[in-house]
């Protein structure tokens, strides 16, 4: 089966109005830039986006928010995006804020075939409202569920045409977990090579999880907080 497509526009062609997407990245680090640009060009609407953050006003998922393509965001932290806050306070956008570790584990559970699990994060807080709880060894845990997402869209450093992926530094973050969790997983990579060119010892996500792969172009890799030593 050929997984390789020419570009981002082809990779996201089956995303529809109302699709549920997982988008990798932490802040602007390791986000699928090419695929987001293609989704903006395609103009699909009413999307639900599961992603740790919502980008900034003019980059990342912020670009889709500007075009009012997002109906609901499921994130852990959205503090860097003024347009997001405006749409949220005006009621145009739904948001579900969940603890970052719970978000990661819900992604992992999805890809691991586990429907639900118990975690202590959020016990006794607003996050616990309406959730089943159970006490283990005297401590209260919440029952959290796997996601049901149509597409996972991730960014890797290197990939091969079989879909094997390797991530770089902290651009790994949610990408491997989401790659495992999509009904359809789309991976964009900086370097696309032939099978055998990546060391099997170093592969982070085996190709079985990846349905579509393409070589991204013109990565901007914008930095949110450039901080240097003098």
């Amino acid at each position: 089966m050929n997984k390789v497509v020419e570009n981002a526009d082809i990779a996201v062609q089956n995303v529809k109005d109302g699709s549920v997407l997982m988008l990798g990245g932490f802040g602007l680090c390791g986000i699928p830039e090419n695929s987001i640009a293609a989704l903006v060009r395609k103009g699909v609407k009413n999307l639900t986006c599961i992603s740790n953050n919502a980008g900034v006003d003019d980059f990342g998922i912020g670009l889709m928010l500007q075009k009012k393509q997002v109906k609901k965001m499921i994130s852990s932290y959205v503090g860097e995006n003024a347009e997001f806050e405006r749409q949220l306070l005006s009621g145009e956008l739904e948001v579900e804020l969940i603890p970052q570790g719970t978000l990661a584990e819900r992604c992992r559970a999805t890809g691991a075939g586990i429907p639900a699990f118990y975690t202590p994060a959020g016990a006794g807080t607003e996050v616990a409202e309406g959730k089943e709880t159970r006490v283990f060894n005297g401590k209260t845990y919440l029952l959290e569920h796997a996601f049901d997402s149509d597409f996972a869209i991730v960014k890797a450093w290197k990939g091969d045409t079989d879909g094997n992926l390797i991530f770089k530094a902290t651009a790994r973050n949610f990408n491997p977990l989401m790659a495992m969790a999509g009904k359809i997983t789309i991976a964009e990579v900086e370097e696309l090579v032939e099978p055998g060119e990546l060391d099997a010892n170093e592969i982070h996500v085996p190709g079985i999880f990846v349905n579509v792969i393409f070589k991204g172009v013109d990565y901007e890799k914008r930095i949110e907080q450039l901080t240097v030593s003098q």
Binding site: Q100, L177, L226
Partner: peptide, 30 residues
């Protein structure tokens, strides 16, 4: 740009540093 901390600031590694996904990270914490 691929190497940041949780405050989205650019950082560096040290001898003995390691990278991991977000699930592993919160595994250490929990």
């Amino acid at each position: 740009a691929d190497l940041i901390n949780a405050g989205k600031q650019t950082v560096t590694t040290l001898p003995g540093s390691s990278f991991f996904d977000s699930s592993t990270s919160f595994g250490m914490i929990r």
